[in-house]
Nucleic acid binder design. Structure first.
Ligand SMILES: [Zn+2]
Ligand SMILES: [Zn+2]
Ligand SMILES: [Zn+2]
Ligand SMILES: [Zn+2]
Lengths: 136, 136
DNA sequence: CTTGAAGCTCTAGTGGCTAGAGGAATTATA
DNA sequence: TATAATTCCTCTAGCCACTAGAGCTTCAAG
């Protein structure tokens, strides 16, 4: 049996976040001590680690809800898991694309060699998207 | 003189967002019609376009506050503008790096060719970071 | 048995908007 | 000019995934 603090240390998930996940229904309400403090089992630890790792990989709470559900049913086909992951991958790739365009514009404007605002490439570009090389 | 709707159409910033920027102090409170509706000048349009473009380039409201301030003082040196932009560029590059690591892991796990959850690479990986190739 | 750490619940704040209620003003048409 | 359609107003609340803090109770070590 772990206290919430021990669980927190073992998983790297902060205490308020653990309570938040409980409120969101991602983890079951654990048993309580006589004094009403949460007491977790090894199963609770496993489940929270799963959640933690899924969050680290960028899945949303809703995604994780589905993935946890699947993980409890080993006999089911894994196509649902794949489609959640594939969708997420697409989202990540979309974000990368956008950020790379930003990177390119930012690199360009920070090359400014003016010395006052009146002719600064940063300020000029912000005032006029026409100076940009990409859409965004 | 533009109404808020006309300003919105010309800048592509939604009406509630314009009011939000006003509340945040990014744009001055405009004059009002007799019936208390906002009336903007060309200056207001210019300023809002600057904000819009800055947001499109990913600057935060706080960044933009500084950049707008600078843009009102053309005689100042532009080093402050550069440091805001350079900091932002670093942030963007950091995010790209993280997302690329995610992309790599997600690509790997979506290659799973199992057909049920019991042996699915997606689920197995979520349960065990040891299976990952990178940190995150 | 005392003390200090750790736990409890509840509320509110973060960023950058977005949606909706319920009403007033403006503009277009008849 | 009367009415109808559109736009605008303020105010509140919601989004996501937490995070911080107040004020209190319980636990574990010595
Ligand atoms: Zn410059
Ligand atoms: Zn641009
Ligand atoms: Zn699979
Ligand atoms: Zn991992």
């Amino acid at each position: 049996m772990f206290s919430i603090g021990q669980l927190s240390k073992r998983t790297g998930v902060k205490i308020p976040t653990i309570r938040y996940y409980e409120q969101m229904g991602l983890i079951d309400e654990p048993e309580r001590s006589e004094g009403n403090q949460r007491r977790y089992t090894k199963d609770g630890l496993t489940r929270l680690s799963f959640i933690r790792h899924s969050r680290d990989l960028g899945f949303t709470i809703e995604d994780i809800r589905g993935l946890l559900d699947l993980s409890q049913h080993p006999e089911k086909p894994c196509s649902d898991a794949h489609s959640i992951a594939a969708q997420h991958l697409l989202g990540v790739q979309g974000r990368i694309t956008k950020l790379r365009r930003l990177e390119r514009e930012l690199k360009r404007i920070t090359k400014c060699d003016a010395d006052n605002v009146a002719t600064c490439a940063v300020i000029e570009t912000l005032a006029d998207h026409g100076l940009c090389e990409t859409e965004h």
